[in-house]
Amino acid sequence: MSDAILEVKNLKIQFKSGKETVQPIRGVDFTLKKGETLGVVGESGSGKSVTSLAVMGLLPETSSEIVDGEINFNGKDLTKMKEKQFRKIRGNEISMIFQEPMTSLNPVFTIGQQLSEPLRQHRNMSKKEIEKEIIDVLNQVGIPRAEQIINEYPHQLSGGMRQRVMISLALLCQPELMIADEPTTALDVTIQAQILELMKDIKDKNDMSLLLITHDLGVVAEMCDRVVVMYAGEIVEVAEINELFDEPRHPYTRGLIDSMPTQNARKERLYSISGQVPKPNEITKGCVFANRCPLAFDKCFEEAPPVFEKGDHISKCWLQDSKEGEVV
């Protein structure tokens, strides 16, 4: 408990639009230890962004609701926190880098104006000190001509530069926890590598914990200590990084690993998991992955598997059950 910075317990989130309600997050549990990089992987639509927005308290106020569960940050439950207190944490103790670098910066304010906001809100600093701090951080994330950049507008910067600006925005108050939601997905490959490298450096230097959300197992292998595999609003497997790649227990994880392009072995055709993530309103009884699972058997369609724990390795698949005894 003491070494956990973030504990998400049985989190359930629903969205309302008109009369319809959907529940894209249905009982999510995971723990992020201090100083750790925890990866969250899963296909598009599995609920990664919704989960991370919930941690930041940034879910749309009117249309969404946390129906159950806890999000404990340093022992305090964020789901019960008043907006006024929560605001003191945002951008200060927890910060977030968003998936969309092109639209996440305000087009009518300069970079400097936007970057000054976290310091203005959370630190008692003069304008001069703020500017100096911003330039420092911009230099840290490898932005050239920082003194000029602060007077420029987002549209004057490339995508890679904007994401660096977003990273510096997240870094300004030296948060304990940084959430990065697919920080490199929108960028091209060479820039991706630079940004990841940068994040790794920064994390080590600043002694932060990092929640790294991605659908790319390659990124996970590069960056993470442990991995949470999400599927259709549930967590299907949690394991330490090497163990996950060496001994994946859930067929979905195996599918993800098999569909990774590898550099040395050029397969004729990439493996891919057939079918799609079910929409939140399409989920019925049984295992969420059953309809796409190559190993599914009758029980999988009847009853959702519980969590099987073997040490730190957790998975949610009937094939772990010794009674079934037919682990492939």
């Binding site: 940034l58 907006e83 969309e100 639209t103 305000n106 087009p107």
Partner: peptide, 24 residues
């Protein structure tokens, strides 16, 4: 998205509306 970013920086609601959203 940029309003969400400002909120993520800890900007209080009033300032979010009067400075950021209104200006846009």
């Amino acid at each position: 998205d940029y309003i969400r970013t400002a909120k993520a920086s800890g900007v209080p609601t009033m300032r979010l509306i009067m400075r950021y959203a209104l200006r846009n």
